[in-house]
Amino acid sequence: MELSATLRPGIPGFELFGDLTVISTEITSNPDPAMVGKEITGVPEYTTNLGLRYHAASGFSGRMKWRHVDSYYIDGGNTISYEGYDVTDASLGYEGVTENGTGWRVNLDIDNLFDEHYSQAAWSGYDTTNYAVSPGQAFWLRLTLDV
């Protein structure tokens, strides 16, 4: 189930946004009867995004988004779980139009604004818990031309 909402509180160009994804899994059939009734590994029960956006008539814009991924099982027996993670991203930008009408945008994006240490993927195997380390804080300068 997914639910998404955008609120415009009456300030021109300002928006609050959010979404919630809820997933419920259950193995209903498997050659190994011990697996029946277990949850599928690697699937969080819910994921949430909350944020705010501002786009001024002058062309300046900003965005900040917080993402929460809930815990999930990482082994087939549903005995080991990963606690999930939180991460925040931000962006500042400007957009304009050239004399011949070509649109352009420049953005400074900051992924993982608070330099959190987390993993977007965790799994269990060979009697170990494994984590794929996610990127630390990263800065991106983007230039987009509409052609």
Rank of each mutant, 00 (worst) to 15 (best):
G84D: 07
D70E: 13
S81Y: 12
V69C: 00
G37F: 01
K38S: 06
L20K: 04
V147Y: 14
V147P: 15
G93V: 01
T25C: 03
G37T: 06
Y131W: 08
T28H: 09
G59A: 11
E83S: 14
V87M: 06
D86N: 12
D19R: 14
V87S: 04
S124R: 05
I110V: 15
G125P: 07
N78E: 01
T6E: 11
G18Q: 07
D111E: 14
L143P: 04
D89K: 03
G125I: 00
P44A: 05
V106H: 01
R8I: 11
Y118C: 05
Y46S: 06
A5I: 12
D146F: 11
L141P: 05
V69M: 08
T144F: 02
H68T: 06
D75G: 04
L20H: 07
V97R: 14
V97F: 09
W104C: 03
Y131E: 00
G103L: 07
F139T: 12
L92D: 04
T28R: 14
T41W: 05
G76L: 07
R142D: 09
A56T: 12
A138I: 05
L7A: 07
D115P: 03
P135L: 07
N130G: 01
A132N: 15
I80Y: 09
L3F: 14
Q120N: 13
S61E: 10
V106L: 02
N49K: 15
N107C: 00
Y54D: 08
T79A: 04
L143V: 12
G77L: 05
N100S: 13
I27E: 09
Y126F: 14
A5L: 14
F14D: 01
H55Y: 15
I74H: 01
D109E: 13
